[in-house]
C-alpha cells in the first residue's frame, strides 16, 4: 500500500477555495441557523395605567360642597334656596337621578343630609357636619368600623408608612365607599399570570391548575409532596366553565 503524501501543498489554488467554503459556512451558521429557544415568551399583558394608579377610588365633594351643573360649579344652597324638597320622604327622585340609594336600613335622604342647610350633613342628635367630616357622620351607625379606621386597621392610607412623618393621609369613608350604596361593586380582574413555572405558557386564559406544572407547583405551594385528593377539586379542566348558580 503506497504511503499517501500530504496533498494540500500540491494544490496552489486550494487556500482560496478552502477559505471561501469556510467563510460561507461560518456565515450561514451565524445568520441563518435557528436561534436557540431561550424559553417561552408571551406578549405582555396590556394593563391600563389608570387601573393601577395610586389614587382614591372616588372623587368626593369638598367643603363647601359644590357640583358641576350646566357648566357651572354650583353649591347646594344656590338651588335649594329656591327649591324645597317635598315633605314626602319616600318617593322617586326627580333631581339627582343618578343616585341609587342602596344603604340597607338607611333609606332616607335626611337621615344624613340636613333639610334646612343642604350644604351640610346632619347627625342624629342634630349636629351639623361639613362634607369634610364624613367619617364622624358614618360613625353614628358603623361604630366598630370607625374605631378600626381611627386605629388604621380599616381603610386605605396613602403617603408615608410612618405616622410621625406627617405625610400620612388616611382616606375618608366616602373616598372608597359610595355613601348612597356603600357595598363594593364587582371588579373586572386583571389578567391571570402567564409566567414561567406558573402553569402552562401561551394560552393566556388557563382555566385552572390542570397541567403537570400546575400540579407540581400546587404540591410545592401546599408544602406536602404527596398527591392530595383535594388538589383537583378547585381546578377545572380546560374548556369547562365553573358552575355558577
Amino acid at each position: 500500500m503506497p504511503v499517501r503524501p500530504s496533498g494540500i501543498t500540491n494544490a496552489s489554488f486550494a487556500p482560496w477555495i478552502v477559505a471561501l467554503v469556510f467563510l460561507a459556512l461560518a456565515a450561514w451558521l451565524t445568520f441563518f441557523s435557528a436561534r436557540p429557544d431561550l424559553g417561552p415568551t408571551v406578549s405582555a399583558a396590556l394593563i391600563e395605567q389608570a387601573d393601577i394608579r395610586p389614587e382614591p377610588r372616588r372623587h368626593v365633594l369638598g367643603e363647601p360642597a359644590a357640583i358641576p351643573m350646566g357648566g357651572y360649579s354650583l353649591r347646594c344652597m344656590e338651588c335649594h334656596r329656591f327649591f324645597q324638597s317635598p315633605p314626602v320622604e319616600r318617593r322617586i327622585l326627580t333631581q339627582h337621578t343618578h343616585i341609587v340609594l342602596r344603604h340597607g336600613q338607611n333609606t332616607r335622604c335626611f337621615n344624613c343630609h340636613d333639610r334646612a342647610d343642604r350644604g351640610k350633613l346632619i347627625r342624629y342628635d342634630g349636629t351639623r357636619l361639613g362634607f369634610d367630616q364624613v367619617p364622624r357622620l358614618c360613625s353614628e351607625c358603623h361604630g366598630t368600623v370607625y374605631r378600626d379606621w381611627e386605629r388604621g386597621t380599616h381603610g386605605k392610607t396613602l403617603g408615608s408608612w410612618d405616622p410621625a412623618s406627617g405625610k400620612q393621609r388616611r382616606l375618608a369613608c366616602h373616598e372608597c365607599h359610595d355613601p348612597h350604596a356603600p357595598a363594593y361593586p364587582d371588579y373586572v380582574p386583571l389578567p391571570p399570570p402567564n409566567t414561567l413555572r406558573m402553569g402552562e405558557q401561551g394560552s393566556g386564559h388557563s382555566a385552572g391548575i390542570d397541567s403537570e406544572h400546575g400540579q407540581a407547583e400546587s404540591a410545592t405551594l401546599g408544602g406536602s409532596g404527596h398527591d392530595s385528593p383535594l388538589m383537583h377539586r378547585s381546578s377545572m379542566p380546560r374548556g369547562t366553565k365553573e358552575p355558577t348558580e
Binding site: Y187, G199, S206, G208, I209, G223, S224, M231
Partner: peptide
C-alpha cells in the same frame, strides 16, 4: 393552599 387557584379568570 392545595385547593387554591391562582389562574382564576372570572369576568367579575
Amino acid at each position: 393552599l392545595e385547593r387554591g387557584n391562582h389562574h382564576y379568570d372570572r369576568p367579575r
